[in-house]
């Protein structure tokens, strides 16, 4: 049945989620939580992709190319998280802290 849902709804949700993730990246001081917010932003982008894929109807089917892309994105995100966390662990070992404001040796 027809719904009152439009593309705008989904895009709005996705955008808001992205904004929340961005806020988290900027505000939090714990490295791991920052990383999680980063993943949140990625997921929001995923939603946008699926929404557009759904609304591009080809022969009565959604454009599955978007889904394929999503497949890859999720894979890459997993790999990225693995490596990123490994880096954070290595960082924690040398600095003994996960407070991002204390990691500032690149300061002029």
């Amino acid at each position: 049945m027809e719904t009152a849902l439009t593309l705008n709804h989904f895009l709005l949700v996705s955008g808001l989620l992205f904004a929340i993730g961005l806020a988290g990246v900027l505000v939090r001081r714990n490295l791991i939580v920052i990383f999680m917010c980063l993943e949140l932003m990625l997921a929001a982008a995923n939603l946008t992709l699926v929404a557009f894929s759904r609304f591009n109807v080809v022969d009565g089917e959604p454009a599955y190319d978007g889904h394929v892309l999503l497949f890859f994105i999720i894979t890459v995100a997993a790999a990225e998280v693995a490596v990123g966390l490994a880096i954070i662990v290595a960082l924690f070992r040398s600095r003994e802290t996960t407070d991002v404001t204390k990691i500032n040796s690149m300061k002029h």
Binding site: V25, I103, M106
Partner: peptide
């Protein structure tokens, strides 16, 4: 320009935003 090199990752993310 050196003023912007704060060494703080979040600052850089802020510039990004």
């Amino acid at each position: 320009l050196r003023i912007f090199q704060v060494g703080n990752v979040q600052a850089y993310a802020f510039y990004f935003g």
